[in-house]
Amino acid sequence: MAGQVTSTGRTSELSNLQFALLMALPVLLFLVLVVAYPLGYALWMSFQQIVFFGGYRTNFVGLANYATMLGDDKFWWSIWVTVRFTVESVLLAMAIGLALALLLNRPMRRPGLIRTIIMLPWCVSLYGTGIMFSYLATGQTGFATAIAFFFGADRPVSFVNRQWVIEVLAIGNAWNMAPLVAFFLLANLKTIPTRLYDLAAIDRMSPLETFWNVTLPPLRFTLFVFTCITTVLSMKLFDFIFVLSGGGPGTASAVMTYQIYKISFRDLNLGYGAAQSFVLLFLIVGSTMTLYALWGRREAAR
């Protein structure tokens, strides 16, 4: 029967798959090339020892690069720094994003102007953010120093030090990412019927209960998605950290991306850098999958 239908011949229309291939195939091919090639090449490099001095040559070393990592204190340190930076960035960005969304959801004068201002940080580049925050947080030029002297202090206040540099980075990163989170949460907030707030008022809910029972439920899936997005963005972040702290002071802010950059382009140990970059990729994918398993699956089922 089915054969009979197709044998009469479709006159002029393309099937979904044909049209999809026609539209998407060139692009997908390009993407596969420029994504698969570097990944494949990096994978190959991670099994090589690549030597530049005395003539470029490569030796197959198997898993030696991966084995080196296990005993490399700097590697373990960079994982710890990455985790600390990511967790702080994500928590800050989500909290600030949610707070901004709740603020913007209130009726106000000149909403367009306020929203434009709130949107600004996301439009500023990450290297620009890095430069701004380095000047803002350093003792010599910093805002804190200016304020402290205004109130009578006589010594510079600097946050770019071993103790606080990660926090400075996380705040700057959250400054940049929070608007994106805020605007998507705001779109969700607008869909909550105001009748629900009337109902909460009739039930005499406290502001906190209202927030928990009325405001939060429709935001939960969006919160999950943006927790994933901000996690990925923070873990793969490089330029911002490179510009702001350069991994320092010392190795205080040497996240994995910075470590990989340094190993590859300063030490020219390309094989080892490639191996570490696979660990980073694994961490990124692994953490989003963990987030999905622990949180997203429940939210998606709602």
């Binding site: 089915a2 009979q4 239908v5 009469t8 011949g9 006159t11």
Partner: peptide, 13 residues
């Protein structure tokens, strides 16, 4: 499977 006919003309495809 099956056919659709408009005035006896098969228009299925």
């Amino acid at each position: 499977a099956g056919r659709i006919l408009f005035d006896g003309r098969d228009v299925t495809s």
